[in-house]
Amino acid sequence: MQRNFNRWEKLKRLLKLYYLKLMRINASPHNIAMGVACGVFGGCFPVIPGLPLQTVIAVVMAFFTRSSKIAAAIATWISNPFNWLLFYYVQFKIGTFLLPIEVQFDPAKWQVSDFMEIGWQGVTILVFGGFVLGVPLAIIAYFIALYFIRRYRRRKTLRMLARRNKL
């Protein structure tokens, strides 16, 4: 039991570290939130082994939107090894619903080693499904990030003022 507790503590510490890294970026809240939105959008694309597609998409989008590249790279972790299967399942369902492509693939029983066996049609379905999934998630992520960044900075300013008034 103690061993699992340590793993959860490490995960909590890691999440807090990335949260604080985002909050401490020296940029406007809008730029950071746009970077997060770019990262979430990029994170919705499938992970192709050996190709950092998600990070490349996120950083390139952040470059074009003139937003935080660091926030974009960090936010791609919305898609991580713990939830890849869920993302692939949703991407596949969206892609097969919207595209007239037939692929024999069961995302519920899928493993990472099966990725190369689905072919270009399957990859097309996953990429299109990721694009469609990424747009609303990026919009939502922008407003959530903007709220939390402004809240964090407002609290930080109030703490600094309270300390200054005590002196």
Results as ranks from 00 to 15, higher is better:
residue 35 G to E: 06
residue 21 K to H: 11
residue 71 A to F: 04
residue 63 F to R: 10
residue 40 V to E: 10
residue 166 K to I: 02
residue 145 A to R: 09
residue 27 A to N: 15
residue 148 F to T: 13
residue 123 V to A: 14
residue 83 N to D: 07
residue 73 A to P: 02
residue 13 R to K: 15
residue 124 T to E: 03
residue 131 F to C: 10
residue 19 Y to A: 13
residue 164 R to H: 11
residue 101 I to W: 06
residue 142 Y to Q: 08
residue 74 I to S: 07
residue 151 R to Y: 14
residue 111 Q to D: 08
residue 165 N to S: 14
residue 42 G to R: 08
residue 162 A to N: 12
residue 98 L to S: 11
residue 53 L to Y: 01
residue 130 G to Y: 05
residue 99 L to W: 07
residue 155 R to E: 14
residue 159 R to D: 14
residue 150 R to C: 08
residue 32 I to L: 13
residue 128 F to P: 01
residue 63 F to D: 01
residue 114 D to T: 03
residue 83 N to P: 08
residue 106 D to Q: 11
residue 113 S to C: 00
residue 148 F to Y: 14
residue 44 C to D: 08
residue 29 P to C: 15
residue 84 W to R: 02
residue 138 A to Q: 03
residue 18 Y to C: 04
residue 31 N to W: 05
residue 7 R to K: 14
residue 114 D to R: 07
residue 70 I to P: 00
residue 140 I to S: 09
residue 164 R to Y: 09
residue 116 M to I: 08
residue 39 G to M: 05
residue 155 R to S: 13
residue 14 L to S: 11
residue 167 L to W: 09
residue 31 N to F: 10
residue 124 T to V: 07
residue 117 E to K: 14
residue 32 I to V: 15
residue 112 V to R: 10
residue 10 K to F: 02
residue 44 C to R: 03
residue 13 R to D: 12
residue 93 K to R: 14
residue 116 M to E: 13
residue 72 A to H: 02
residue 118 I to N: 12
residue 71 A to K: 03
residue 153 R to P: 00
residue 148 F to W: 11
residue 134 G to Y: 04
residue 94 I to T: 08
residue 160 M to H: 12
residue 38 C to P: 05
residue 27 A to H: 15
residue 160 M to Y: 07
residue 116 M to K: 12
residue 39 G to Q: 04
residue 163 R to C: 00
residue 69 K to N: 04
residue 61 M to I: 05
residue 13 R to Q: 14
residue 42 G to M: 07
residue 24 R to P: 00
residue 116 M to P: 00
residue 59 V to E: 01
residue 45 F to S: 01
residue 59 V to H: 00
residue 64 F to N: 01
residue 149 I to K: 06
residue 139 I to Q: 07
residue 138 A to T: 00
residue 45 F to V: 00
residue 25 I to T: 10
residue 50 G to L: 03
residue 100 P to F: 05
residue 23 M to A: 15
residue 123 V to Y: 13
residue 6 N to M: 10
residue 30 H to A: 13
residue 141 A to S: 15
residue 166 K to M: 12
residue 130 G to E: 05
residue 102 E to D: 13
residue 152 Y to D: 10
residue 119 G to T: 09
residue 120 W to N: 11
residue 44 C to S: 14
residue 69 K to H: 04
residue 64 F to M: 10
residue 82 F to C: 00
residue 85 L to A: 09
residue 105 F to W: 14
residue 22 L to Q: 08
residue 20 L to W: 12
residue 83 N to W: 04
residue 87 F to D: 03
residue 116 M to Q: 12
residue 83 N to T: 11
residue 35 G to M: 07
residue 92 F to M: 05
residue 37 A to F: 08
residue 145 A to G: 05
residue 22 L to N: 09
residue 156 K to P: 00
residue 130 G to Q: 05
residue 59 V to F: 06
residue 121 Q to C: 00
residue 9 E to T: 01
residue 46 P to V: 01
